[in-house]
Design a binder for these strands. Structure first.
Lengths: 351, 351
DNA sequence: AAGGTATAAGACACCGGTGTCAAATGCAAG
DNA sequence: CTTGCATTTGACACCGGTGTCTTATACCTT
């Protein structure tokens, strides 16, 4: 295999751009142009260089490129989302998209409550100089973080339950519409007395889902009593508390929509403690299609949002020019549909 | 604030090592020594330089260092673990440890089944040249991956249910011991007929937990019928199937240990379908303390492994020389204790 | 065939640090 | 007050690419 000195050498140590240049008989700048897909190249030159690259098994050094370009080939996932499954699925989608690229995904949790959050992120950006950032809810709702990205030349996409930015910087699910549609199913079944377990203040998802619920009530001609809306914090325990509150009202609601599955599971728990049968005496719907939803009894009817796809599309919006296969087609959607997963927690009201 | 030209300038563009050198009246190499904590420096020189660094707000450029050192300040998390909560908690621990360092965490899922896994990882290492890698189970069990890390000069730590490597390269939970202890609680309660839902072949955790279970049987003088061990794949559905199998045996087991919470939840599900009361007629114990465990009814007694701590300690073992605060003390442990979380799924047998 | 212009390729400095080795400095001993 | 040696500091090349500007080549025109 050792046909000349250069290739003998290449067996031991990684070939550099200089080795390629020497072998192809061109300058390193020309090799650089080939790597970067410059259009001002003769076909024959390009071929020569590509052959040399292949022969040598040359892989450009990302650190050197990063230094010269003042930009790292990193996508940062900025998040403070408490739902592990959501975060991991989103990661999965992103990683799927960047699989065969030169990019890597770095995770960076941030603290929503921290007063120094902007400085923290700025410091991180200054150090790592990432190419792009992905903002997961709820911090995706912070306009100041998006502005910081823009200011520092970091591309970004904001992920949310509703469109949060212009189409280049946003990917969203249609929470409001899907919740309205699903709650309308319930009114069509004959339910008239509803309880609603809201997500916490400051979460756009909570507001969107509530808006969808209210719209369904409106459409069915039902006046929703505000005292039948209870606020939780998206966690199981708050669902129990909310369930206890709502189910001790008289008359009792026959259907409860909870802002997410954890809280819905809490409501189921409360119902069991109070001896209320689900779904016969009480219909419950959650949101997320988390593992909990299918593991509890009865299995929860819930709404699955396409979080993996959102991750993939977010990455595609972010760095289309870095992704090898352009198998996807433009324009990329801004809103993705969620789907209703009907399991066993809903039924028509009794009597 | 602008006291001289240099500081005026530093407001616009980031200061470099040259600016610091000029301000401190030393060479850039000396500044470099200060940054890297070289010991052959006069105290007065060090101070001068540190003052200049502080005045200018100088932050070394990681890309440049990466190029010169041929090493990126990246820790890679290599995983193919299906349990989102586990992965995310581990990430959390790692991130906690590297919080104020120059390091970043990048996630890289790998496919256990892929025949090209070694080449994939090698390619990734060649491109990103990470400083270190963290191997999560089950791929942490692959010695060839560890060898690859060693060969490519990537520090690594393997995480597992038992010590998988020497103490510098391993952090483990004590699955076998804790399972033995917990199952002994069950025998002490009076249980004699046990079912065991094993994790899948090829998972060390499955083998360890089984060994612990068997040891407890042994210690209690119980001969465990091998047909009362059923293998699952760590997922809910396989737990249902295993539960159906075990609970249709006659005489029925009065206690079932499942290799993880998902499968335990499946067993609970199967028991309910068959009209068997938990825990009155059947005690069930899981492993992981996943959200599912506390959300189902009855809440599962389970074992919590200290995955966040394992992440933190893994990072500390990996890059002690890069972590700012040496608040932790050596030697770092190799094995961390899991704890039994007693909820409501166990009770003495009815006889 | 000469001149003019568009285009391809190259020379060289530069990104911002670190390694090597030589030079300068400090201090003890003669 | 030298000399000798250990220690501290600096000069300079180098890590492996890219940007800018210049030069060489190719293609048209007249």
């Amino acid at each position: 295999m050792a046909q000349d000195d250069a290739s003998t050498d290449s067996g031991r140590t990684k070939p550099t751009i200089n080795d390629v240049a020497a072998r192809a008989g061109v300058s390193k700048k020309t090799v650089s142009r080939v790597i970067n897909g410059s259009s001002l190249l003769t076909d024959s030159t390009r071929e020569k260089v590509q052959t040399a690259i292949k022969d040598l098994g040359f892989v450009p050094n990302p650190q050197a490129r990063a230094l010269a370009l003042r930009r790292n080939f990193l996508i940062v996932l900025l998040h403070d989302n408490p739902n592990a499954q959501t975060v991991l699925n989103f990661q999965k989608g992103v990683l799927e998209a960047i699989k065969d690229s030169d990019l890597a995904l770095v995770v960076r949790p941030v603290e929503r409550a921290s007063p120094t959050i902007l400085d923290d992120v700025r410091g991180f950006f200054e150090k790592q100089r990432p190419l792009a950032a992905l903002l997961l809810p709820p911090i995706s709702e912070r306009a100041d973080l998006a502005a910081l990205c823009a200011e520092m030349g970091v591309r970004y996409v904001r992920v949310g339950s509703a469109v949060l930015d212009d189409d280049r910087h946003s990917i969203a699910s249609n929470d409001r519409d899907v919740v309205q549609a699903v709650c309308t199913k319930l009114t069509d079944m004959g339910h008239r007395r509803f309880g609603f377990v809201r997500g916490p203040q400051g979460f756009r998802s909570a507001a969107e889902r509530e808006a969808g619920f209210l719209a369904a009530m409106d459409a069915a001609g039902i006046t929703h009593d505000p005292s039948m809306t209870v606020e939780g914090n998206y966690r199981f325990e708050s669902g129990i508390a909310a369930g206890e509150t709502l189910l001790s009202r008289s008359p009792r609601p026959t259907a409860i929509f909870a802002g997410n599955d954890e809280m819905a599971a809490g409501v189921v728990h409360a119902a069991r403690q109070m001896g209320i049968q689900v779904p016969e005496q009480l219909s419950i719907i959650g949101f997320d299609d988390s593992p909990t939803a299918s593991h509890i009894w009865p299995p929860l009817s819930t709404i699955r949002w396409p979080i993996i796809d959102m991750g993939r599309i977010a990455a595609q919006k972010l760095v289309p020019d870095f992704l090898p296969e352009r198998a996807y087609k433009f324009p990329l959607p801004d809103v993705l549909d969620s789907t209703f997963i009907d399991r066993m927690s809903i039924a028509p009201p009794q009597d």
